Simulated scan of single mutants.
Amino acid sequence: MSTDPTESTPLPILLLNGPNLNTLGLRQPEIYGSDTLADVVDLAERTASELGYGLRAAQTNHEGEMIDWIHEARGQVSGIVINPAGWTHTSVALADALVIPEVPIMEVHISNVHKREAFRHHSYVSPIAAGIIVGYGVRGYEFAIRRLVELISD
């Protein structure tokens, strides 16, 4: 039996939020609700902790920074929960980066993107994702973490 204490501690889950999600609670509350990004991170941390995982959370409005974080995640995280926001529909580069960590990816969208403008119906991330949660508000992050842990455990 190993005495290495890190052996039994799973790698953390990485929570990534894309552009404009720093304005949650202010921007279009009729679509995104009144919860803030801090509320999302708090919910995600509580959920991950309940399931025995740590959580690293980050938000950026800069695509290159997001891609760098994904590159750095290789070998450092158990899985990724990502709300790519506007990059969902535009970024081949983000989709290409998400295969690099070689961990399960869960895609989250607070609103039901399929009930919105037609350009929001296509996702470059979805073909890479193990699962997609849309339209459940910020609770979608909780659902995504729970499903991600199931996938990791299998």
Rank of each mutant, 00 (worst) to 15 (best):
E45N: 02
S49C: 02
D42E: 14
T9Y: 02
L26S: 14
D68R: 14
N20Y: 12
E142D: 08
R74Y: 14
V41S: 00
A73D: 09
Q76F: 03
D4N: 15
S8I: 14
S153P: 06
H62G: 00
S49V: 00
T6S: 08
T23K: 15
V108W: 01
R120M: 06
Y32F: 15
A95E: 05
A95C: 06
S126F: 03
K115Y: 04
V99Q: 07
R147G: 14
D68E: 14
A97I: 06
L15W: 13
H114N: 12
H109N: 11
V81S: 08
I145M: 04
V41N: 09
I82E: 06
H62W: 12
I67Q: 11
P29S: 13
N83Q: 09
P29T: 15
P5C: 03
P101I: 09
V138W: 00
F119V: 02
V77W: 07
L94H: 00
R27G: 06
V149G: 01
E117L: 02
L37T: 01
Y124P: 05
V138I: 15
E117S: 02
S2W: 01
S91Y: 13
L24G: 09
L151C: 01
R120E: 08
G18N: 14
H109V: 03
T6M: 05
E50T: 11
S8C: 04
S78I: 13
L11T: 04
H109E: 04
L21V: 13
Q28L: 15
R27L: 15
S153V: 05
E45A: 06
V125L: 07
L24C: 14
G64W: 13
W87N: 00
N61G: 01
G54F: 05
R74T: 14
I145H: 00
L14K: 10
L148D: 09
S153M: 10
L55Q: 10
I70N: 12
E7I: 11
T36L: 04
I132T: 15
L16P: 13
T9I: 15
R27S: 08
G86E: 01
R120C: 02
R56P: 00
S2P: 00
L51V: 06
I100R: 08
V138R: 04
R56E: 11
V92E: 08
F119T: 04
P5D: 04
A38G: 09
L21D: 09
T60V: 08
G135R: 03
L24T: 10
V134T: 13
T88Q: 07
R56M: 10
G135S: 03
S123M: 07
P104N: 05
G54V: 07
D42R: 11
W69T: 06
S34N: 13
T36M: 05
T3V: 04
S91R: 03
S78L: 14
I13V: 12
E7V: 09
D68Q: 13
E65V: 15
V81A: 05
L98Q: 10
A38R: 12
G131W: 03
V138K: 03
E63T: 10
A48Q: 03
A130P: 00
A58V: 07
G135N: 01
V77A: 03
D96E: 13
A44V: 10
R74W: 13
T3S: 06
R74A: 15
E7S: 10
L14Y: 07
L11Y: 09
I132E: 08
I105K: 00
N22C: 14
P5S: 05
V125A: 04
G140N: 02
